[in-house]
Design a binder for these strands. Structure first.
Length: 462
RNA sequence: GGCCUCGUGGCGGAGUGGCUACGCAGAGGACUGCAAAUCCUUGUACUCCGGUUCGAAUCCGGACGAGGCCUCCA
């Protein structure tokens, strides 16, 4: 008997038992990247968090009974600006950025979503939604634009819990003259000749920011679905406006039943920003030594991310990555990689922890417990499930050969000769000579281990 | 100004009314010629002030502090 999944719902600000609309097809939508630049480490958080949720849902409801949609937004004014700046076409920019993004998420151990729809392939659905909104009196065309009429929706502001009055009081932006209400937002806008555009009933134009998610979730998940996820900064205005568009277009009370939002990320105690120089992309962490003077395996980034509950703010530090790596190394030393018993159950302690609103910190604690109590097969299963198992990289044998791989044959011979000399000295109980050789090797970065069986193994110190 | 989070031991980080996780670092021990690695044991905490309660880190009120959103930034 599976435990009940409980998730914190931003809509109600409480932890609720999860009940899918259709257990035969649990449906989840997560806001994906706008492909104008490489994804940064803050972008990695929702990717990892909702991947864990996807894995859990598949475990609870069956692999064939979960549909996970994560979009690619490939039409946006930031894209246009960046392409112009770099002197390449929009298509070149979005293709290149998407390619890197796909490599990044894979390295982070994320399963591919069931569908990764692209905004540019859903223009027809966007137009259809806009037409419905106009027909039902929730939108109006003005000056080449189509705008959503916010006051036409009494429930507007439900998700972010702000009233129209509050927002007006805090407004500090100029209101475009063609807007009826100052909170009305753009569904469609006209494109100049040099801007990407599509023919529409309102002339050649392009979609506003929020409409693509309403269109893609509708196409792939239906008018209403179970879970909608994203970063907490998307609550307002993005998700609030998605709700307005979808609920009014389809005359539904809700767009998604459960809204989940991950907390923000800081880098070494400071907000990540280009001006502070602490802006770091996933690609840089994986492939360069920009952060902490070395590159980091995706599994380390993933585990470091999961140490903190997804709704808490997280401070991204070198120390946290080092600790995550130390944990992974220790676990891989003890996991039973040879077990091929697929019937091995995922330990209940892991499932139970995840069912408590994705308590991944508790999961990690339970993995430590499995490790300590010597449950090597359950340990492997848990690591695999969490997406941090990498035998080729973290197993003891792999590490030794990997680190030695770069050395010249000459150096290797030298090291082995010294070790043999030391073994001879030890056999003769010449401790002074033995320690001298060990120090000499240490100076070369070689760490010796005299194992119980009398053999001496060595590793390179990082 | 409005709305919303959050304040736990040296550090990271769970926990939502009684039983004081877990990891890293530290300390002690085992093993070792000595080490390293490994294993075992272990100390230290709930921002402050009121209130509710037999009992509060956990609930309520207030203060102070930190962060986020209200500007197409996850």
């Amino acid at each position: 008997m599976s435990p009940t999944l409980k998730i914190y719902n931003t809509l109600t600000r409480t932890k609720e038992a999860f009940t899918p609309l259709d257990p035969a097809q649990v449906r989840m939508y997560v806001c994906g990247p706008t492909v104008y630049d490489y994804a940064h480490i803050g972008n990695a958080r929702p990717l990892i968090v909702f991947d864990v949720l996807y894995r859990l849902l598949r475990h609870l409801y069956g692999v064939a009974h979960v549909k996970y949609v994560r979009n690619i937004t490939d039409v946006d004014d930031k894209i246009n600006a960046r392409a112009a700046e770099r002197g390449i076409t929009i298509r070149e920019l979005t293709e290149e950025t998407n390619r890197v993004f796909q490599n990044d998420v894979q390295a982070l151990g994320c399963l591919a979503p069931d569908v990764q729809p692209r905004a540019t392939e859903h223009i027809a659905q966007m137009i259809a939604i806009i037409e419905r909104l106009i027909a039902s009196g929730h939108a109006y065309a003005a000056d080449g634009h189509v705008l959503f009429d916010v006051p036409s929706m009494p429930a507007y502001g439900q998700l972010s819990r702000r009233s129209l009055e509050d927002m007006r009081a805090g407004a500090r932006v100029d209101v475009a003259p063609y807007k009826r209400g100052d909170m009305d937002f753009v569904l469609w806008k006209p494109s100049a000749a040099n801007e990407p555009g599509w023919e529409s009933p309102w002339g050649r134009g392009r979609p506003g920011w929020h409409i693509e998610c309403s269109a893609m979730s509708w196409e792939h998940l239906g008018e209403t679905f179970d879970i909608h996820g994203g970063g907490i900064d998307l609550v307002f205005p993005h998700h609030e406006n998605e709700i307005a568009q979808s609920c009014c277009a389809f005359d539904q009370r809700v767009m998604a039943n459960y809204w989940m939002h991950n907390g923000f990320l800081q880098v070494e105690g400071e907000k990540m920003s280009k001006s502070l120089g602490n802006f770091v992309t996933i690609h840089e962490l994986l492939c360069t030594d920009k952060f902490g003077g070395r590159s980091w395996p995706g599994e380390v980034l993933r585990l470091a991310m999961l140490r903190t509950h997804y709704r808490q703010p997280i401070d991204w530090t070198v120390k946290a990555l080092e600790e995550a790596e130390a944990n992974l190394l220790a676990w891989h030393d003890h996991a039973d990689f040879d077990s091929v018993d697929e019937s091995e159950e995922l330990p209940a302690s892991i499932v139970n922890a995840l069912c408590e609103d994705l308590n991944t910190a508790e999961v990690i604690s339970q993995i430590h417990a499995l490790n300590k109590s010597g449950q090597a097969r359950a340990l492997k299963k848990a690591l695999q499930f969490l997406g941090v198992l990498n035998i080729e990289k973290f197993s003891r044998a792999a590490r030794a050969s990997d680190l030695q791989h770069d050395l010249s044959a000459e150096t290797k011979t030298q090291i082995e000769t010294l070790i043999a000399d030391r073994l001879a000295a030890r056999a003769a109980k010449n401790w002074a000579e033995s320690d001298r050789i060990r120090d000499e090797l240490a100076a070369m970065g070689v760490v010796l281990k005299d194992n119980k069986d009398g053999a001496t193994t060595w590793e390179l110190k990082r």
